[in-house]
Design a protein around this nucleic acid. Structure first.
Length: 815
DNA sequence: GACCTGCTGCGGTATG
């Protein structure tokens, strides 16, 4: 295989890829050599640059050049976050092997792998093994697993940006730390899309003091961002999210494209848009599909295949198609509503024109008028290449507990030796001795509080000091519950005649009245019966409800917020290129006339008095999540001035406090209400942190193995999980409030739920802004959408008692 | 008058 020596090998592989119609990511020759010279590192390029395959070939060429250096068996581990990616990359790798004429085997090991293949692999590992983070840990949970890695040379982590910010990323960090025990000179490579914190991303994956290289694509991905305007501004609703009226505008876009992905933000929205498109253009029947996480996996695979081979004209989807196989025929992407962030926007745009030579085309369809400003903001952010960072998770003790159990289930571990390795990871570099001691105690006797419960005595210490699981049952349950993804329990939906359709939330079905129909995967269904967590249905027709799911909310990224405020600030005098802002002019003019358009260094507060009562609006543009906390905080601070209770509403741009009493707010005290002083103390007083932590603790309890989710194929219901986790949380909080898992729950509440760093930053900005207080008689273009939101749901700051009292008084008065 | 939402991802097996 001398042909692969040095630069020659580089050229041959490039040629070979081009002959195959692939688009190689062109490493420089000196870069190419780094793969062979013992470097670790990070490769950064947009999707569609063939970076995955290029890295693979670069690593392989090293093996080929010096076959004598490598023994038999497993040489390379390839980690992908998705099972579906694993299948495809392994196939491509195997093809390459065959063509190069090397009899290496590429194996896949994950939940889809046939048990027979699994057994075979244990007997004789393939040369290259493609795994998920979870499967990697499952390997480490096997007895005598060290032998698998005897000749391991390198590990590559694909789509690292996807894993970095999550607990799955922490799993990778720990997995690599363990592999480094077996392979001292392990090469570690990460592959990532562009994100805001590339240096940190590399530091997290490779915190070790070894030769490192960062390799960035020079070529840039071309993107066409095309806003879709309605014929008149009146057609755009002032609030809302569906954007139904835009369907007629979208049909021709789909017809003029080869193949289109229509991205929506929620599962129910995708179901509705599927219907809207079919209604608008019935000939789409059979060429249109729908794809989201609650749809049966088989159906989703079928859709993905038909998207790849060009048989589908369009697919309406959620984030479920954000990642995945290259859908070559897709030349157009449509984003319905806000993409909420620059990185997600680029990711979705990159699904079309999937090659460095093609231009990605993405149409932005606003679902309400203010979203047009967001399009302008996105364009600017993309132009300036300001992409969100992925914040690495640190000190996730639940993941560490699980990892230690994994080792204990495998060959057992010596605490001091593991501790020194764990401390080298990015996630646990700040762990202290006390926390570590607590963790060991937790594994062996359940800690001081739970020690009287036998079930928490999982790990035994042998005479040699080895921490080990001896119970087969405990070992089995651990293997079955490995991973850090805690899913909500949902009901399966099956045809009574057979055939699985997807999943639905329990509460949606429970609220469904007799004879009411619902829609799933684009089909109208009626309930025949419910048995064993399964809803049996039959096909129906006519009016039907679209289920909603209690999913996570996509927060508006702070990057996008910055550009949003900037664009709004200059909205009345747009640049010639900003069609979006010109289109919005009538609406913006009205905002300026009735109230004010906040400039870059201003913070707008509106007080509106009308027949209903008194409304206070504030516009931080920090996204719903932050506004939720801010609204509670401001309500709390005002209520300290004078007893008053509010109902609250919010959207991504601002929030409302509403009261039937006059709000005691004026130019003088407004600064005090918006101060950064005592910020977190007031936040804690204004929310129920203990309740939030208790809810967060549910996931922690599952991941750390305190509450078992899967018992031999049976999944426990949501309620039962929550109640046992809640019980444990209460016991711990009462008797050991400093417990490392309790502390973690609070940290997660502050960092994730309350977004403390972002909140603090927002208040710092407000403090440095000029505060503009405006009184208005009617709702303004900015306030109206929030008011609409409050009609849907009202959160109340007042206690239940006070509220009942007031309702009673009202009732008495009117009676 | 304008409207009616809330993402994604994973996962058993031992031994002669």
């Amino acid at each position: 295989m001398a042909a692969f020596e040095d630069t020659n090998g580089y050229r041959i592989i490039l040629q070979w890829m081009e002959d195959k119609g692939n688009y190689p990511f062109k490493f420089q020759v000196d870069t190419w050599k780094k793969f062979g010279n013992g470097y670790s590192g990070m490769v950064i390029a947009p999707t569609g640059f063939g970076k995955t395959f290029s890295v693979f070939l670069a690593l392989i060429s090293d093996f080929l050049s010096h076959p004598e250096r490598y023994g038999t068996g497993l040489k390379m581990i390839w980690v992908t976050p998705l099972r579906s990616l694993a299948k495809d990359i392994a196939k491509a790798m195997q093809e390459a092997m065959d063509e190069i004429g090397l009899d290496w085997v590429v194996g896949v090991r994950n939940g889809d792998t046939d048990p027979k293949v699994r057994q075979q692999q244990v007997k004789s590992m393939p040369e290259i093994l493609v795994v998920t983070p979870e499967s990697l840990h499952l390997l480490l949970a096997q007895k005598n697993h060290e032998r698998f890695f005897k000749n391991l040379h390198c590990i590559a982590v694909d789509e690292w940006h996807e894993l970095l910010g999550s607990k799955r990323g922490v799993m990778i960090e720990l997995g690599i730390a363990q592999l480094k025990k077996y392979v001292r000179k392990l090469k570690i490579w990460g592959i990532t899309a562009t994100i805001g914190n590339l240096d940190e991303a590399m530091e997290v994956l490779i915190p070790y003091d070894i030769k490192k290289a960062k390799i960035t694509a020079k070529e840039h991905k071309k993107i066409d961002i095309l806003p879709v305007f309605p014929d008149e501004i009146e057609i755009l609703p002032w609030a809302g999210h569906l954007g139904a009226k835009m369907a007629d505008k979208i049909v021709p876009i789909i017809l003029n494209s080869r193949s289109t992905i229509v991205f929506t933000n929620t599962r129910s929205q995708s179901e509705m848009w599927y219907q809207l498109l079919l209604d608008a253009y019935p000939d789409f029947a059979g060429q249109l599909a729908i794809h989201h996480s609650s749809i049966d996996a088989h159906l989703r695979i079928w859709i993905e295949e038909n998207l790849s081979n060009g048989k589908l004209k369009a697919v309406v989807s959620t984030s479920s198609l954000d990642l995945g196989i290259d859908f070559k025929p897709v030349d157009t992407v449509i984003q319905i509503g806000s993409s909420k962030g620059v990185a997600r926007f680029l990711q979705r745009a990159g699904r079309s024109g999937h090659s460095p030579f093609e231009t990605s085309r993405i149409y932005c369809v606003p679902t309400h008028s203010l979203e047009l400003i967001e399009v302008a903001a996105l364009k600017e952010a993309v132009k300036q290449k300001v992409i969100e960072p992925r914040e690495p998770q640190v000190l996730c003790f639940d993941v560490l507990v699980q990892f230690l159990m994994t080792l204990a289930v495998g060959d057992g571990f010596m605490p001091d030796e593991v501790y020194s390795r764990v401390k080298q990871t990015f996630a646990f570099r700040d762990i202290n001795d006390e926390e570590w001691k607590g963790m060991l105690e937790f594994l062996t006797i359940g800690g001081s509080v739970l020690k009287s419960y036998e079930e928490f005595h999982k790990v035994v210490i042998t005479d040699e000091g080895l921490y080990k699981v001896t119970s087969r049952k405990i070992a089995m349950l651990h293997r079955m519950n490995m991973g850090v993804i805690v899913s909500d329990a949902m009901l399966k939906v099956k045809f009574i005649s057979g055939g699985y359709i997807g999943m639905i939330e329990e509460y949606f079905i429970s609220r469904l009245k007799k004879d009411e129909k619902f829609i799933l995967a684009g089909r109208t269904l009626e309930v025949a019966m419910i048995k064993d967590m399964t809803v049996f249905v039959r096909a129906a027709s006519g009016k039907a409800l679209v289920p909603s799911y209690l999913g996570g909310r996509l927060p508006l990224s702070s990057n996008l917020s910055v550009f949003l405020r900037e664009k709004l600030s200059g909205a009345l005098n747009p640049k010639a290129s900003e069609k979006e802002l010109k289109f919005l002019h009538p609406l913006l003019a009205r905002q300026e006339e009735r109230s004010h358009i906040p400039k870059d260094d201003e913070f707008l507060v509106e007080l509106i008095k009308n027949r209903e009562g008194y409304h206070l609006f504030m516009y931080p543009f920090e996204g719903r999540l932050v506004h939720e906390v801010m609204a509670a905080l401001i309500a709390y601070r005002i209520s300290k001035l004078a007893p008053i209770s509010f109902s609250m509403a919010m959207n991504d741009y601002g929030f409302e406090l509403f009261s039937d009493k006059e709000i005691p707010l004026n130019e003088e005290n407004l600064n005090r209400i918006l101060t950064r002083d005592n910020l977190m103390t007031d936040v804690i007083s204004s929310i129920n942190a203990a309740e939030m932590a208790s809810r967060k603790f549910r996931d922690i309890a599952v991941i750390s193995g305190m509450v078992i989710q899967n018992y031999a194929g049976k999944q426990r219901s949501n309620k039962s999980l929550q109640s046992s986790a809640g019980l444990i949380f209460k016991v711990l909080e009462d008797h050991d409030p400093n417990h490392f898992l309790v502390r973690q729950a609070y940290t997660e509440v502050f960092n994730i739920q309350l977004q403390e760093p972002r909140l603090v930053e927002a208040f710092r900005r407000i403090e440095n802004s000029r505060i503009i207080l405006k009184y208005a008689k009617t709702f303004t273009p900015l306030s109206f959408p929030i008011k609409i939101d409050s009609l849907r749901q009202t959160l109340s700051s007042e206690g239940l008692d006070a509220r009942i009292q007031r309702l009673l008084q009202q009732a008495n008065r009117s009676g």
